[in-house]
């Protein structure tokens, strides 16, 4: 109390303090709000592998062969459009650009056409291309009654003939890549390709589709005779209604997953 009554220190302190906060509030800039980087931008880690089928000569390790026995083409769709997934696979497929003249019935147990319509360049996607096909009547859901029954009529095709590979236009769905680019968010690739299928239409329809291609890098399998393998996985969707499919058992959207394994035996 005496300090306040007789000393001028407190008065000077009050004036100085007031001056200090005035100067502080007039000169202080707003703090910069620096956003915290939570995730680092994706850094691609691709190699330089190049894989080509050549003439698919057995025993030539420079020529890559599609290993159909260990590959698959899978489809899935929501049952009746809303329920859980209805899934299946195609028993017969290949990687060949089937020309019109090749759209025939072949008396064969395996694929009659060479799986040589592809090339893969890990570092240069412009050099990557592929074609492929499935036989629609070879859809396998594990229910023979459905696969050989409503699937046939629903997809506008004809039943399987034992010992025959049906590559005719009504039984063939083909894809053919038109552009392959790097995917900015993964080590994979964005692929634009044409899907050609007649379905229930009067003539085949070609739709441009965009899908995602992943490369499962080359690995050496250490056996008595070492060999190498690699994989390509293509995922995409399409609308089956575009192709005249009216079945209400499946949704409009069909997911396709192609898992192709290759070796150089």
């Amino acid at each position: 109390m005496k300090l306040l009554s007789n000393s001028k220190i407190w008065a000077v302190a009050v004036i100085m303090l007031s001056g200090l906060v005035y100067i502080g509030s007039c000169t202080r800039d707003n703090d910069l709000i620096v956003p915290v980087k939570l995730t680092q931008p994706f850094a691609p880690n691709r190699g330089t592998n190049i894989h080509l089928p050549g003439t698919m000569t057995v025993g030539d390790p420079t020529q890559w062969k599609m290993d159909k026995a260990h590959s698959s083409v899978l489809w899935s769709s929501n049952y009746i459009g809303t329920a859980g997934l209805l899934t299946g696979r195609f028993n017969q497929f290949g990687m060949h650009d089937v020309a019109a003249a090749e759209m025939l019935n072949y008396v064969a147990t395996g694929q009659p056409l060479l799986d040589n319509s592809w090339a893969f360049n890990e570092a240069n996607p412009a050099q990557t291309f592929f074609s492929g096909y499935v036989q629609i009547n070879q859809s396998n859901t594990g229910e023979p009654g459905r696969d050989g029954g409503c699937n046939i009529s629903g997809m506008g095709t004809t039943p399987i003939v034992a010992g025959t590979q049906n590559l005719t236009v009504t039984n063939l769905a083909k894809i053919k890549s038109t552009k392959v680019e790097f995917d900015a968010s993964s080590n994979g690739y964005i692929v634009t390709f044409d899907l050609t299928w007649q379905g229930k239409l009067a003539a085949p329809l070609t739709k441009s589709i965009v899908g995602k291609l992943n490369y499962i890098t080359m690995t050496t399998i250490a056996t008595a005779t070492p060999y190498k393998v690699f994989g390509l996985q293509l995922k995409f969707q399409f609308n089956c209604r575009d192709f005249g499919i009216t079945s209400t058992s499946i949704a409009d959207k069909i997911d396709i997953e192609c898992n192709m394994n290759f070796n150089n035996k």
Partner: peptide
């Protein structure tokens, strides 16, 4: 005022308003 002026805060508006 001291808390607003001498600690990290994104805006100076409150300090100016108090002044």
């Amino acid at each position: 005022l001291f808390l607003q002026l001498f600690t990290s805060s994104p805006g100076n508006d409150m300090a100016r308003n108090n002044m």
